[in-house]
Nucleic acid binder design. Structure first.
Length: 599
RNA sequence: GAUUCCGUAGCUCAGCUGGAUAGAGCAACUGCCUUCUAAGCAGUAGGUCACGCGUUCGAAUCGCGUCGGGAUCACCA
């Protein structure tokens, strides 16, 4: 039985019989026992001393005594100030161990077990330039949160809403027609997204020159920006696109296909996947009907110039534009449309999560509010998974200062560092060429992914490109290493002892303190997954696997496992190692990180 | 200006539904490889939890204020 559950019942009984205090078991909380004191779990008794009419020490002692007598699991206690430290019997921990070891995926629920379906949108790139470090955070977060929600029993639909249309795409397209000379990914050997990005930059360069010339000719900056031939060019191109002009559409399709091929490579390397793709070119007209409905319901209003707005001043927000005077959509229009479309398509959707940076906090606040005002009951199930920007030591990444960290470059660099370090340490000497390459990739990506995911999504994070990401300490490779050592140990045991499963039986008195500590950490795995999901924070899992790795490393280094003479102890320790290894592997997989069998 | 998020060791981060002496890693310094993988382990040093006031038996955690930083407030996306 679950320890906290059991104890809170008993404590509630204790409080009732000792002091006639009526406290609901659910309201009783516990905390970890401080390392410096004896005990496995601690009850803070301060909340009950007033009603008990005793000193904190006496209150603690009385409860402790009562528990010790009434609860076999509690074998001892001590009271320090107002803290009642409870010592739980080794047999409880060993029973728990036997249970956890008997499960292949202890703590992990199967998708669908909760009966809830959740859609997670993430990635959502623009098709005019390659992915950068910020996108990496988005992709890793979205994927990992999806995995964590699945591990909590939810059915998850991972989606990607690709921003494949609009004025920004036209920039790349126009620049390519002007200066591309028919260059293709094949002819240039460039990854498609990078090639298209190159022309996006090219556009900007020429456009700035045009503006400069016009300004020199006496125009104001604003006039120059509006009248520059390139600006007129892309505006015409956008109109052509919307009119379905075949040549423009053809060019658009061709260049987008290059970008998708490029993105696919990056996605595949990162290990992120999607169940359902949405393309803005297919959804951008969707919201207009909702705007009509909103007008009819008088939720929205139309200005004299024909533009449509919503007044949110009652909600302490502004007036927000929903449709331009010329009848074209803005982002809000589209987002309303896609949301409504998703509610229609997935009628059983319990939640809709948008993984988007915190610069759009206001946008989503407004979006959900409008959905609510439009009468969609699903509005309350929408959640903006808002994450902080990835910044450089000197501040934000700026494309015009060339400080944007390219995703593919960064990944390649991480893999390269992993390779250099592995070669230096001679770790892959017995690996085949392809095994070694696979290992470099696993390690490099683990370092990158863990570095990003261990940070609370809500917080901005600093990344210093000059200092490569660590491979020691609180890092992905450290956890991989712990796993690899366990795997090596188990392999050796299977060979030398000719056993495949590791018996869990052990005399209570043989359990070492550090083994109990390990079991206590393992015990927390299921609740860790729950709170990670509840907070939409993979960092909770990341920090947990690190804690487990660290504790196991100490164990590995200080306790003989295979060299122990007593076979019963050997088997138990192998079983404990196996269980630890499984949790490390499963935990890492929820972060989208692979663990190598050896390294 | 309004709204909102943030400020913990030199650096990067945990801890925040109030609880014991605030934890890791990196960087620095000491030890430990004829012993299950040293990408490791053990240890030393490093803190006015931005600051002030308040609530409380108890505040890094909650409230108010000040200072400092970011983001948003577009017929942009």
């Amino acid at each position: 039985m679950h320890l906290e559950h059991l104890l809170s019942q008993k404590i509630s009984e204790s409080l009732s019989s000792l002091f006639s205090i009526d406290i609901k078991p659910e309201t009783i909380g516990f905390q970890k026992t401080n390392k410096d004191f004896q005990g496995d779990i601690t009850l803070v008794v301060f909340p009950y001393v007033k009603a008990a009419g005793k000193s904190p020490e006496d209150t603690g002692r009385l409860i402790g005594n009562h528990l010790k007598e009434s609860t076999p699991e509690v074998i001892d206690y001590n009271v320090v100030k107002g803290f009642l430290n409870l010592v739980i019997s080794n047999s409880y921990w060993l029973d728990f161990f036997a249970f956890a070891l008997s499960k292949n995926d202890f703590g992990i629920q199967l998708p669908g077990a909760s009966g809830r379906t959740i859609m997670v949108e993430y990635s959502s790139p623009n098709t005019n330039k390659p992915l950068h470090l910020g996108h990496i955070r988005n992709n890793l977060l979205g994927y990992s949160v999806s995995r964590i929600l699945e591990a909590n029993g939810n059915t998850v639909i991972k989606t990607n809403l690709v921003n494949d249309r609009g004025i920004h795409i036209c920039k790349s397209m126009l620049a390519w027609t002007r200066w591309g000379n028919g260059e293709t990914p094949q002819s240039s050997g460039m990854k498609g997204d990078h090639l298209v990005g190159k022309y996006y930059v090219e556009f900007d360069k020429h456009y700035k020159e045009e503006v400069k010339v016009l300004e020199a000719g006496g125009k104001t900056k604003e006039e120059a920006e509006k009248q520059a031939p390139l600006m007129l060019g892309i505006q015409k191109m956008l109109l052509d696109w919307e009119a379905g002009e075949p040549e423009t559409i053809g060019l658009w399709k061709m260049m987008n296909s290059w970008v998708y091929a490029g993105f696919d490579i990056t996605y595949q390397t990162l290990g992120v996947k999607f169940d359902r793709m949405y393309y803005e070119s297919e959804t951008y007209l969707l919201g207009k009907k909702i705007v009509e409905e909103g007008l009819a319901k008088k939720v929205f209003y139309r200005k004299e110039d024909g533009s449509v707005w919503i007044d949110l001043t009652q909600d302490k927000l502004d007036h927000k534009l929903l449709l331009r005077a010329d009848g074209t959509s803005v982002y809000m229009t589209q987002d309303l449309g896609t949301a409504a479309e998703r509610f229609r398509e997935y009628s059983s959707l319990n939640q809709l999560i948008y993984t988007v940076g915190n610069e759009q906090d206001y946008h989503f606040k407004v979006l959900f509010l409008i959905l609510d005002k439009m009468g969609y009951p699903q509005a309350k199930n929408c959640y903006h998974l808002s994450y902080g920007m990835v910044e450089l030591p000197e501040g934000k990444m700026k494309s015009r200062e060339g400080t944007v960290v390219d995703a593919d470059d960064l990944i390649a660099e991480m893999i390269g560092t992993a390779k250099a370090m592995t070669l230096e340490l001679g770790k892959a000497d017995t690996f085949s060429e392809s095994e070694a390459e696979e290992l470099y990739k696993q390690i490099g990506l683990a370092a990158l992914k863990y570095f990003i995911l261990k940070v609370d999504p809500k917080k901005k994070m600093v990344f210093d490109p000059k200092e490569s990401i660590d491979f020691n300490g609180n890092t992905g490779p450290f956890i991989q290493y712990t796993y690899a050592r366990i795997n090596s140990l188990l392999g050796k045991a299977r060979k030398e002892l000719a056993v495949d499963s590791f018996v869990s039986s052990l005399a209570d008195s043989s359990l070492l303190p550090i083994e109990k500590e390990l079991l206590k950490i393992i015990y927390r795995f299921p609740e860790t997954l729950k709170s990670s999901a509840a907070e939409y924070n993979p960092g909770v899992v990341a920090n947990y696997v690190y804690e487990l790795s660290k504790e196991y490393s100490t164990y590995y280094q200080t306790v003989n496992i295979l060299k122990e003479e007593n076979t019963e102890l050997v088997l138990f320790r192998l079983g404990l190692s196996q269980l630890t290894g499984r949790i490390l592997k499963n935990g890492m997989s929820l972060l989208g990180i692979d663990v190598p069998e050896r390294m």
